[in-house]
Every structure is written in structure tokens, then in C-alpha cells.
Design a protein around this nucleic acid. Structure first.
Length: 431
RNA sequence: UCCACAGUAGCUCAGUGGUAGAGCAGGUGGCUGUUAACCACUUUGUCGGGGGUUCAAAUCCCUCCUGUGGAGCCA
């Protein structure tokens, strides 16, 4: 008897096969029982009909509870009544375990309860679909970068200091060195990597100890930082655009079923695979003011502003050339107007907000040093970073992509807590 | 940190001053085509904690705790 996976069920029409999995749901009607069997790849309705399988096996089926684990053999049969087009007529059943009463029921639940039961919630259809999309996006990003000669370059997670002075860090004791901090970005380290490899990226967890409490924030989230030598501001945005459009196409190709299950507006997602718009910070402020916003030149955008910026757009929008005061020290100053940083934020449409922040990096030793001084950042701590500008400095650029935010936008899930297996938030550390 | 809202059965919620409720889940029985199956019967409570007002508090007041939605900050 061949053991198969449900995703391949079409190939086995008329054949007798074995499937190992769990019982998602069960319905019965006297002499007939319907078991919804799932195996991680898909699900199918398995039918136990008393006259066909005999009393002993029928009684075994009666004992099954939701989420019980089983090995089921049966004949695959095409059936128009079945949602997937196929059913399984059970010929044999082996129970691995009768599950206790499963906490998550076939009904609406509250957020708190679901998060408390995240370890079990992950089995539900919607969460299963989100995890599959997360996987696709992960590999699409890595594939794109690999095809474009970016080497993976893993930045450390335990770091001695902040990459950006302002944000709050998680502190951990570190032997005789005093304290270490969990990384909030691998970017500065990546800049050292390009001097060896040309183009590099990292992809891993990052940590922010801010008490942010919104649908776009986690305290532990995954970030992909990419950095490239001899790439200037405009080309940097081009790379970001190509990457995002590549990811959209990959998900549309691979995850139609999951997108439908999540009720994602697929047409809108398809429309996002078109040239992205670029608008300067200054133009954006003017546009916002025309639309009635009270924002002033020099302010950062709030959630509401981000929504307004993309409200008429099918594609993500780059907002470029921000005032240097509201951007970090490492961004290159615009040589045509040194009050501006050569940077861009990529804002996704459909109210998802910023998904990428990028910039050309300051490559002049003296300007970088004075920027550190302006921000009151101790030079000593960053000497290794300054060194890069001493030994063969080059123009270079990079960006950081918020992985969960990208998943949220592409899958159309409002809160990013569902886009990661175990979300870490201000009030949530378990399970 | 700030603003708003919420906490009642395993879950989702109703009850707003007078004996603690419903639906779902669980249990028992019935049913040969169910799709969150259905039908009948049935078990389940520190009403978030503490204090106060009252003859009487889930209900009104104070306080604390916990959570949710959002803001700020950011990816």
C-alpha cells in the first residue's frame, strides 16, 4: 500500500492508498460517517460506510475525536459532491491516538484565547495558509537575491551597541563585558561584508524593546537586510522594486489556493506588479497638506499619513530624500542639498504602510564622523564602522525589509501577529 | 507612556439593583450523503481581585490587576 500526501491525490484516482494525518472534523448519520482528514498538505473527506467496512472498523471510526491522529487506507474516488473533487472510501483505519477534547472549536474565538492556544491554532486552515505563504515569500526573497549575486552574510544577533541610537534595545548580561544587546538590524555589519563580497544580505530575527502596541509591530520580527557595493540611491530603489515584484509573482504562482482561502483580493495584488512610483518627501508633505493633513515639513509620517499617501495607488510608493534630522546618521547626505538624506521608505498600498527602509550610505569619512558627533554617538564604539571609509571607500546602498509586514500585505492579513508562528509582543511571551 | 473599551460556564456572549442565563463544545440516544450536519435529552459558575454604598450588587462608586483596539516610535 502506497503512502501518499493529499496534495497529490489527483494522481491516485481509483487507487488504494494510505494517508497519515489528523481528523479535522467528523459527521455521522447512523450507518455512515464522514471524517475530514488533513495531513498538512491538504485535506479530504474520508467516508466510512458500515456495510462496506464492517462493524469493527466502523466502531473504531466512531471513537475518533477532533484532532485524533490516524493512519487511514482507502480508495480514492472522484466525487462532484466533494469540495476538493475527491473522496476517500475507507478500507482500513489505524488509530495512533484518540485526542482529548480540542480547545479550538468550529466557531468564532477571541484573539486572547487564540493566542493563548497559538500552538494549536497553527493547525487551522487560515493559519496553515499563512504559514505556507510565509514560506513562499521567504524562498522567493532568497531566490531573487541568489540570482542577483547577493551572498548570504549572517550578521550577529548579540551586539555591543545600537545600530541606531534612538531605539530601545533588549539587554542581556554578557560575562565580563557587562551587557550585550539583541540586534535590531544587521545593516552596519553588512556594510563590512560588501567590501569582501560585493553584494550581501542577512535574514534573521531582530528585536525592538519599544512598547509599540499596534497591528504592525512585534518585539521580535524577521528582517532581511541587503547591501550592495557600487550601487547608488536610484539603483537601490530599482533593486527593491524588482525584489518585491518578484515576490508578488512567486506568491501568485505558487499560492493561489491559500490566497483564496484568506479571501485576499487577488486582482489588487496582481495590479501591484507594475512600476512603483517615486515621490520626494517634500512633495509628499505638500500632497498631504492639500488633503487636509496638519503635518509640517520635518515631521515623520504617522499611520494615518501612510494610508493617505498610497490611497489612490495600486502599487507601492517610494518616498525619497528625507530631511536628515529624522533619519539615521549613516545615510548619505544629498550632495545637491546637504540637508537631505539619500534614502527612501517603501510604503505598501491597502493601508499596510512601510515595508522597506533603505538608503545610500555615507561614504565620506569626515562627513560620517561629523554626523556621529551631531547625534552625540560615541565615535569610539563606531571606529570599526568608520574604518570602512578609510580603506577603499566606495559608493554603496542597502535596505531593510520587514518580513512580517510584507507577508501581511501580500496575504491581506490585517494584524502581523498572525504572520509569524509565535508572535512576541509587549504583552505576549507565551507559548 | 497616553487615549478608548472590555473582563459572567471549556469557548462566544446576553443579563444594568431583587433566585445565574443562551448558543456552541462535552455526555447519552437517534439518523445511509453530511459540509461549522441535524433532532431529542443532559452536565458545567470564586460574575477578574480588593474595598465601599444598599434591606439586597454581575449590575452603582472607588481602587488594583489583566487584556483588546488605537496613538507615538519604528520594519
Amino acid at each position: 500500500m502506497k503512502k501518499i500526501f493529499l496534495k497529490d491525490i489527483k494522481k491516485y484516482n481509483g487507487k488504494n492508498v494510505r494517508i497519515d494525518g489528523w481528523i479535522r472534523n467528523k459527521r455521522s448519520s447512523g450507518k455512515i460517517q464522514f471524517l475530514i482528514l488533513r495531513d498538512g498538505t491538504d485535506e479530504i473527506q474520508a467516508v466510512a460506510f458500515l456495510p462496506n467496512i464492517g462493524e469493527e472498523k466502523f466502531k473504531l471510526c466512531e471513537k475518533l475525536t477532533i484532532e485524533s491522529s490516524v493512519k487511514i487506507s482507502g480508495n480514492v474516488r472522484e466525487d462532484k459532491r466533494a469540495p476538493s473533487g475527491y473522496e476517500l472510501d475507507i478500507t482500513n483505519i489505524e488509530i495512533i491516538q484518540i485526542a482529548d477534547e480540542f480547545p479550538i472549536q468550529k466557531k468564532e474565538h477571541g484573539v486572547t484565547f487564540l493566542l493563548d492556544n497559538r500552538h494549536l491554532w497553527l493547525r487551522s486552515k487560515k493559519q496553515n495558509a499563512l504559514l505556507k505563504i510565509r514560506h513562499s515569500i521567504y524562498y522567493a526573497i532568497c531566490n531573487y537575491l541568489d540570482k542577483n549575486d547577493f551572498y548570504r552574510f549572517d550578521a550577529p544577533i548579540l551586539t555591543p551597541n545600537a545600530c541606531e541610537g534612538t531605539t530601545t534595545l533588549f539587554e542581556v548580561p554578557y560575562f565580563d563585558e557587562g551587557s550585550a544587546y539583541l540586534s535590531q538590524s544587521g545593516q552596519l555589519y553588512l556594510e563590512t561584508g560588501i567590501m569582501s563580497l560585493g553584494k550581501v544580505y542577512d535574514f534573521g530575527p531582530t528585536f525592538r524593546a519599544e512598547k509599540s502596541k499596534t497591528r504592525k509591530h512585534l518585539t521580535e520580527f524577521w528582517m532581511m537586510d541587503a547591501e550592495a557595493a557600487f550601487v547608488e540611491h536610484k539603483e537601490n530603489m530599482k533593486i527593491q522594486e524588482e525584489l518585491i515584484r518578484y515576490v508578488i509573482r512567486a506568491v501568485l504562482k505558487r499560492n493561489q489556493k491559500e490566497l483564496k482561502l484568506l479571501e485576499r483580493d487577488i486582482v489588487r495584488l496582481e495590479k501591484a506588479d507594475a512600476p512603483f512610483k517615486i515621490i520626494t518627501y517634500k512633495e509628499t508633505i505638500e500632497k498631504l497638506q492639500k488633503k487636509g493633513s496638519k503635518i509640517k515639513y520635518g515631521d515623520d509620517f504617522g499611520a494615518q499619513e501612510e494610508e493617505i499617501i498610497t490611497e489612490d495607488s495600486d502599487v507601492p510608493i517610494f518616498v525619497e530624500k528625507w530631511p536628515k534630522q529624522i533619519k539615521p546618521f549613516y545615510m548619505k547626505l544629498d550632495r545637491e542639498d546637504k540637508k537631505l538624506s539619500l534614502c527612501s521608505d517603501l510604503i505598501a498600498p491597502e493601508k499596510f504602510g512601510e515595508i522597506i527602509g533603505g538608503s545610500e550610505r555615507e561614504d565620506d569619512y569626515d562627513i560620517l564622523k561629523s554626523r556621529l558627533e551631531e547625534e552625540n554617538i560615541p565615535i569610539k564604539e563606531y571606529q570599526w564602522y568608520l574604518d570602512l571609509r578609510k580603506y577603499g571607500t566606495i559608493p554603496h546602498s542597502g535596505f531593510g525589509l520587514g518580513f512580517e509586514r510584507l507577508i501581511g500585505w501580500i496575504s491581506g492579513v490585517r494584524h502581523i501577529r498572525e504572520t509569524i508562528p509565535f508572535p512576541r509582543m509587549i504583552n505576549r511571551l507565551t507559548p
